[in-house]
Amino acid sequence: MSKQKIAVFGAGSWGSALAIVLADNGHEVRLVGRRAKQIDEINGNHTNNTYLPGITIPTGIKGFTEAKEALCDVDAVLLVVPSKVIRETVRSLLPLLSKKTPIIHASKGIEPSTHKRVSEIIKEEGLGSDQMGSITVLSGPSHAEEVALRQPTTVTVASEDDEAATYAQNLFMNQQFRVYTNPDLVGVEIGGALKNIIALVCGVTNGLGYGDNTKAAIMTRGLAEIARLGVHMGANPLTFSGLSGLGDLIVTCTSVHSRNWRAGKMLGEGKTMEEVLEQMGMVVEGIRTTKAAHELANETNIDMPVTKALYSVLFEKIDPYQAAEELMGRVKRNEVESLYDL
């Protein structure tokens, strides 16, 4: 693939790690962040120690604080910002893009007020239309810290446009970062968003002192309810047995690298949601997504007991022990039922 000019919005750990992958592949990367001090560090010291301590930022990455400058003559845009600022980010970019430009996003979440997926928000705000280029999502089991260390990683790119998915695959694919394509945009986005809920719950169980049996139960039953809601929204059920379903669930629910798992552990240890967020100092996407998924489950009459239990802890201030007891004390069920009635 010829050298491409890529503007990456979001200079946190994941945005920086993906920028490193692109730079390793010989592309010109413009990494956009809001804090001048951080961008000066990237350009001057070739480090981003707040988010990727100990990692050298390749010289093929240049930091920017001004979107207009970063977008000059770009071939593609990569959005790696928290889902809560996707709308305002897209609104700011739209008047600056003068040509049809592929939009790739690696953000995970569902908007509570509208219950829209990230690609739906991007398109609603004016990008991803026929005139402005296609939308592709990149998702899968991938801790930023390990990607930045060039450890073997596999992810999925999904788009309604096969050519767009292949373009993204070619941008990122290398010996350490293997990229698959998937036509199921809905399923990949749903899997990537809802696994953060299950990771939070797994963290809570660790904080309560429970062990591997409990974690295995939460992950397995959590995957079942992710698939239930995803299929209802139009996803292919096979997607949830792949990288953006089972794979992402494993890596996020079992690792100390996972901010959702760490946040859940603090909740299980007795901290309030406000205390957790203050101590984390970073966005915990699963909290916001829990609210959206709980509302969606109620609206669609989809059974999501793990999500419901977490919602009661986060937003109804139910004690985690009580929520766990209520989850275990539900009526008896048959495990092997239809996908819709699990």
Rank of each mutant, 00 (worst) to 15 (best):
T154F: 12
T154P: 01
T154G: 15
V155S: 00
V157W: 00
V157C: 01
A158L: 06
S159C: 10
D161F: 04
D161P: 08
D162E: 15
E163S: 14
E163K: 03
E163H: 11
E163L: 14
E163P: 08
E163R: 14
A164Y: 01
A165Q: 05
T166P: 02
T166E: 09
Y167P: 07
Y167L: 05
A168L: 08
Q169R: 11
Q169H: 09
N170K: 15
L171C: 02
L171Q: 00
F172W: 09
N174V: 07
N174I: 01
Q175N: 14
Q176W: 14
F177C: 02
F177T: 01
R178P: 00
V179M: 03
V179P: 06
Y180D: 10
T181M: 01
T181V: 15
P183K: 09
D184G: 10
L185Y: 01
V186F: 00
G187M: 03
G187V: 06
G187A: 05
V188G: 00
E189R: 03
I190M: 06
I190W: 00
G191H: 09
G192T: 05
A193E: 06
A193D: 04
L194T: 08
K195G: 04
I197D: 00
I198T: 12
I198L: 04
A199Q: 10
L200M: 04
V201H: 02
V201Y: 04
C202L: 09
G203M: 04
V204E: 02
V204A: 09
N206H: 12
N206Y: 03
G207T: 02
G207P: 09
L208P: 09
G209F: 12
Y210R: 11
Y210A: 06
D212V: 14
T214A: 06
A216M: 11
A217C: 14
A217G: 12
I218R: 08
I218K: 07
M219W: 11
M219N: 07
T220Y: 10
G222Y: 03
L223H: 05
A224K: 11
I226Q: 03
I226P: 06
I226W: 04
I226C: 05
A227Q: 11
R228Y: 09
L229S: 02
L229R: 09
G230D: 12
G230C: 09
V231Q: 15
H232I: 11
M233C: 09
N236G: 08
N236M: 11
P237Y: 08
L238H: 12
L238T: 14
S241P: 05
L243V: 08
S244T: 12
G245P: 12
G245A: 11
L246Y: 12
L246V: 15
T252R: 05
C253A: 15
C253V: 10
T254I: 13
T254R: 13
S255P: 03
V256P: 00
V256W: 02
H257F: 11
H257N: 01
H257A: 00
H257I: 08
S258R: 02
S258C: 02
R259G: 00
N260Q: 06
